[in-house]
Design a protein around this nucleic acid. Structure first.
Lengths: 335, 335
DNA sequence: ACAGCGGATGTCAACGTTGACATATGTCAA
DNA sequence: TTGACATATGTCAACGTTGACATCCGCTGT
């Protein structure tokens, strides 16, 4: 900047004024400055600028569990466009679903003095350490899953209601014994909520809850095995509800391998190939971009001085009917 | 930092020494400093630090076309772990496959004085504007597609060879008329390379190239339509090679809708559900995480002072045989 | 006893930018 | 003519940190 100023024969401050449209500058001076900027290929140093003004980095930090997962990728995409529209930069890190990595990422972001923090909590996280930052007024929003040990803004999908609707859909097609397959232990928020939705639907229809119809598999293969275990029961389910995309894929694999095209299936989370499957997969679709965008809006509102108490926003899900959920239960002795 | 120093009764410099393990500090002083740091909840300001030392931000900027696309997400994941292992932070932006957004993202990163730049070029990009930065010694690496108008480091998949191998696989199963479906116009590097691989395989086997077997569809539906057009030809192909994951999905949909389980299919890019399809999809799989990691290694090597000329690294692809590529051509009048 | 040395700490300036305030020049109304 | 005011620019300091160099102390060896 000093170089540019020298070139034009003015002070750095004048150059600063030109570049920031701040204060009065003679038209001729402005032009000469702009020309020198071009000539020297000058680019303002954002680091120095951020340090001077407000001592905050014009960036938002985002922690997600996995970059390769399209769900979180799309969430990040939603966050990014909203954030960029405000002239802020997005800094992303992935925690690999590990509390330790998550903490160290957050620490890095805080050390950079980001203007806001967005976190998809890792499964075993704990966010009490963020209390002081929150009190100090740093906008912090949690996505997809709420914070643990901290009252803070949060944007989640309508897990319970979506799950309820998916299971109710199966019930409305005559199913009375419906398996539930999800990947992760009960510590994961989304799993708990979706399981509640499953029970809500059963209760609403006056159907009994049968513990033996609930299975767990932490990845696709495990979910496939879990599905097969359900089918091998003495009194097997006629339909299955899967609590996330890996579980859905596993169930699809299992039904395909077992040649059981008669078992109805509804999955939580849409899959890119869902309509190509045989039968096409009926799903409860989330809207990850909307989750990201909503969270970003919350952060931006807080940046604008919104000091109201912590809010929880819920992004609706949508039942996409494609075929696999509409299979009727086989006509059995009792039906 | 001054607050901590005052608390302990030393100078900021001493606190700095403690925190950076730099220079001799009395054990007792160190402990008292650490305690004050904890007590005051002090966190060093990375922005100020970066500005002082080397005038470079301890971050790497990465531009990808789309966040939600698992291919680029996984690339970003590969980059991130490599970069973080070096204590650097990853800053990501998505260009939405737009040259304008790409440029403005790059400008932002340069203004932040990132230590390195990694770019997956948007389809219509032009990177001449980066020449001066490159000359100035900024590590710049292009991923998945080479730079346009600039000689620079680059990491790409073995598009041509992978494609050749995929088509050769079909040929080895007796196919002589093989359709080619890819999404994008000839300006896209990957499309050009994969098409060349297709022609290589034909030539290698002494098969004629038939222009009418080449179709274009820019998304899944378009690719499906393109596939149907191929099947409707007077002398239709007995096998199809698809040049990317959307094209593959489109082809799968088309074959499924047309009830043509006899048409062999090999696709470039693996799909999460490939093995669940009927028949399971044979693919030429890329290794996006390896692409990201290799690119990151290149940037880091440049940061370490490697000033050798621009390199191009090629990450191998892998043929994953699952069934759809092994269907024999129907016994026709001529075979 | 004293030079010399290494350990522990301090002082100062600088990184690039911009807020707060000051100065200089010109314009206009009283 | 003069003071009030707007316009155009300059001066200075500060943001938080650390490199370069200086200082002070006690200990060692002769």
């Amino acid at each position: 900047m000093t170089d540019v100023a020298r070139e034009v024969g003015v002070t750095a401050k004048t150059v600063s004024r030109v570049l920031n449209d701040d204060g009065p500058v003679a038209v001729e001076t402005r032009e000469r400055v702009m020309e020198a900027v071009r000539k020297l290929g000058y680019q303002p140093n954002l680091m120095a600028r951020n340090m001077r003004v407000g001592a905050r980095d014009a960036a938002i930090g985002l922690v997600i569990p996995e970059m390769g997962n399209p769900f979180f990728g799309t969430v990040a995409g939603g966050v990014e466009s909203a954030v960029r529209a405000r002239g802020l930069t997005l800094i992303v890190g992935s925690s690999d679903e590990t509390a330790g990595l998550e903490q160290s990422l957050i620490a890095t972001f805080l050390a950079r003095r980001v203007s806001g923090l967005m976190v998809v909590p890792a499964a075993a996280g704990d966010h009490r350490h963020l209390r002081s930052e929150r009190v100090a007024g740093l906008p912090i929003v949690f996505l997809d899953r709420p914070a643990v040990g901290l009252t803070a803004d949060c944007v989640v999908s309508a897990n319970r209601e979506g799950s309820r609707a998916g299971v109710a859909h199966l019930i409305s097609h005559g199913h009375r014994r419906i398996g539930f397959v999800a990947d992760v232990p009960a510590t994961l928020y989304t799993r708990r909520e979706r399981f509640q939705g499953y029970r809500d639907a059963l209760e609403e229809a006056g159907l009994p809850f049968d513990r033996s119809l609930v299975e767990t598999g932490h990845d696709m293969e495990a979910a496939a095995a879990a599905t097969l275990r359900l089918l091998a029961l003495a009194d097997p389910p006629t339909a299955v509800f899967t609590g996330n995309n890996f579980a859905s894929m596993g169930a699809v694999v299992a039904l395909s391998r077992a040649g059981r095209k008669d078992v109805a299936l509804v999955g939580f989370d849409d899959l890119p190939l869902a309509e190509v499957l045989d039968p096409p997969l009926t799903v409860v679709a989330q809207d990850p971009a909307a989750v990201g965008a909503a969270a970003a809006e919350l952060v931006l509102a807080r940046l604008d001085g919104d000091r109201s108490r912590a809010r929880r926003a819920t992004v609706p899900t949508r039942l996409i009917v494609r075929g696999s959920g509409e299979l009727p239960p086989p006509a059995g002795p009792r039906s």
